[in-house]
């Protein structure tokens, strides 16, 4: 019906929840087998999110952020997409090797996702209220009337003005930003334990974005929800993230706490990203960009996948793949020269 996937959550599931890692992705590998060849889209992604924590996933378009998220949700487009390695553990259990039924039950404990292309996901022939209420009826067995009342409350929670009235309106009557808020309301409706938000505030203006991020923050604190925030907005990331994982060509190239990453990025790609943001406090000249294009995933460059675009590249970079190595206890970088980057002033 819609593009928001909300899993069932048996009420008992929250009880006696083991502490520790909520969701872990380890060395995940995904490829798309297309007519043009095999696109290696995810090439060993490792990240995790704990309860009550916000992990921001940053990276260029096409770097595999959404495919990783789709694989976590179990909605990878198969074929052409195939998982070829790795684990996705929810509360310590690998979701990739368990039975479909088991997997549905674990998803049932509440992983929800707001999709990147949510704007086109609402069904044009049903009212917005009906589409939200459907979840409460189907998943929670609520009466039509109660479900509609809850739908209006959800619209109100995501700050849609006149929620009681607008619940009866159709998607085309909402502006782009308001439709995105409807999608967020749908994903939060059943109180997920982990929310994967793929560019959730991209279409929103700043005052509403601030409200939505406040709202997500509130929910997260209340429910100890883990949030995986996929975004290209380095401003939002600086405001809300606890940790950041930077992705490039299907790999994590840098992972660090938010403060250390902004203070001293330890990967040339991250440095490039931080330099290419337009700033509100000055009228800049031409923006610094990262030269070139992201690689075709049919032909990922040898060695470090970033080397054709990297201003620091050395001969070794075209030969050896730099592994994601720990730098001290809190951060990691996949660059042959990471140590030098961290030591610089």
């Amino acid at each position: 019906m819609s593009n928001v996937y909300v899993a069932d959550k048996p009420s008992a599931a929250r009880e006696g929840r083991p502490s520790g890692r909520l969701l872990e992705v380890e060395d995940l590998r995904v490829e798309f087998r297309t007519r043009d060849g095999v696109a290696k889209v995810i090439n060993g992604v490792t990240y995790h999110v704990d309860a009550g924590e916000t992990l921001a996933v940053l990276g260029e378009s096409g770097s595999g952020k959404s495919v990783t998220a789709q694989t976590i949700m179990g909605i990878l487009d198969t074929p052409p997409g195939f998982v070829t390695g790795g684990e996705i553990r929810f509360h310590g259990k690998d979701m990739l090797t368990m039975s479909a039924e088991e997997r549905r039950r674990i998803r049932g404990e509440g992983i929800a996702m707001v999709f990147q292309d949510a704007l086109s996901a609402l069904n044009p022939v049903f009212t917005v209220g009906f589409q939200i209420a459907e979840q409460f009826r189907v998943r929670r067995g609520m009466s039509r009337r109660d479900a509609k009342k809850r739908a209006a409350e959800m619209l109100d929670q995501v700050k849609i003005p006149n929620a009681k009235q607008r619940v009866n309106e159709y998607p085309h009557q909402f502006s782009g930003g308001m439709r995105q808020r409807v999608m967020i309301a749908m994903s939060l409706a059943l109180d997920p334990e982990v929310l994967i938000a793929d560019e959730p505030t991209t279409a929103l203006d700043v005052t509403v974005q601030a409200q939505i991020m406040d709202l997500l923050g509130e929910l997260q604190r209340e429910r100890q929800m883990g949030l995986i925030l996929i975004t290209h907005d380095l401003g939002v990331v600086a405001d809300v993230a606890d940790r950041i994982a930077v992705m490039y060509a299907g790999r994590i190239v840098e992972e660090a706490g938010v403060y250390e990453l902004y203070a001293k990025p330890a990967h040339p790609y991250t440095i490039g990203l931080l330099e290419s943001i337009p700033r509100i406090d000055e009228k800049g000249q031409q923006l610094r960009t990262i030269r070139g294009l992201p690689p075709s995933l049919l032909r990922i460059p040898t060695g470090c996948p970033f080397h054709p675009r990297c201003p620091m590249a050395q001969p070794v970079c075209a030969e050896k793949v730099p592994p994601l190595l720990q730098l001290g206890s809190t951060r990691a970088s996949a660059c042959h020269f990471a140590e030098e980057l961290v030591k610089r002033d």
Binding site: Q116, H232, S276, I290
Partner: peptide, 11 residues
Amino acid sequence: VSALDVSIQAQ
């Protein structure tokens, strides 16, 4: 450019 990542946005 609102749906784009920063380096692409800059480009």
